[in-house]
Design a protein around this nucleic acid. Structure first.
Lengths: 193, 193
DNA sequence: AGTAAATGTTAACCTACATTAACATAATTT
DNA sequence: AAATTATGTTAATGTAGGTTAACATTTACT
């Protein structure tokens, strides 16, 4: 395993000594998942928060009618988990499933609590990561309320061009909160413009 | 000013010594706003994050068509700001306006950065606060996608009965992402059931 | 108390998007 | 290569919620 992408991510917000880096890496686990495997399942306790080295995941909620609602895609250099379940060690609301073969570096709940004690500045790092996640989630609510489905799709393509290439259309429709049929219609409308 | 509610809030997540409490309180400012005053205005840099001692605020986005989209209400014991603007010290996407006369304890960006250095465990506190905010925002996206407007309104009433009493209906409609006319229809339907 | 402003209701009509269903095409598996 | 399985498209019809507009009620101001 090459921990460089992970350490680079930490470097964006805090600086770690060599010893701190080694301590940190001694407490994480590297893991590969295959396409379609679940990292977290709705109802289970989310035991890990993970940093993606390669691959792509979707975080989704299965409603009572059996419909999938994707709330997040994650690719290389992103963090993924069911944070609500992880922080409270309570049953997960969401599933996290691999859309591609995915390599992760995982932090268990206990490991991360130990690390917070041993390297307090990690609190700062994770505070900043969560702040950014919060802000982007809030912006998503705004887009949801103030844009039409077509506008949202265009913004999504511009914001996440790689993801738009990598994941099937019907998942993008689910992320946007519309049906695949309607997204198909939007796409054909955009071609005519 | 009585700082007890603020200190109690900190106590839920971390413990502070007497000196730490005094240091913290020496760096905050107490401020009163009148109903309808703005704490943050879209486009300005959000200079403070605030803890509400009394009163009620709404955080909203004004879209290009001049329509208000409320993304958050906040009452006593809650934190309020445009976090995206505050953390990046960049122009605010949102307005924060008082719905009632409101008393706040405000933390300036500089004060909070100093406090993080002087009392590192505050990083932990704010990490936890933001984690919770993130989780509740994510849950809101789920509700948005998987519930009808009527179901969302019923949940809102159950989750925030005080807020439902205190703010005008048309603001609740805006929070739910529907028109006041449609909320009115929903309410009359609920009366018949 | 009287007037203006803010808030809430009702009803007719409209639109963005959902549903259903049939079909087309691409990607995997055998 | 054939056969599944996953993904994408088109079109008819249905519905949740929007828009407009007129009116009712409450609250705030002079």
């Amino acid at each position: 395993m090459d921990p460089k992408p992970l350490l680079d991510c930490f470097k964006k917000y805090i600086s770690l000594t060599n010893e701190e880096e080694l301590l940190l890496l001694s407490k994480v686990t590297y893991r590969k998942y295959l396409k379609s495997q679940y990292i977290v399942q709705q109802g289970d306790i989310c035991k890990f928060t993970g940093f993606i080295i390669s691959g792509c995941t979707k975080t989704f909620y299965m409603d009572d009618g059996g419909q999938e609602h994707i709330i997040l895609f994650a690719i290389e250099d992103w963090w993924t988990s069911d944070l609500g379940s992880f922080i409270a060690q309570s049953p997960a609301d969401f599933n996290v499933q691999c859309i591609e073969n995915t390599e992760l570096i995982q932090f268990s709940f206990d490991a991360i609590e130990e690390l917070f004690i041993e390297i307090p500045k990690l609190e700062r790092f994770f505070r900043k990561i969560v702040e950014r996640a919060f802000v982007s989630t809030q912006k998503r609510i705004v887009r949801n309320f103030s844009l039409t489905a077509k506008e949202q799709y265009v913004q999504f393509k511009n914001m996440y061009p790689t993801i738009e290439q990598r994941v099937p259309q019907y998942m993008i429709a689910s992320y946007l909160g519309i049906t695949k049929e309607f997204l198909s219609k939007i796409k054909s409308q955009l071609l005519l413009e």
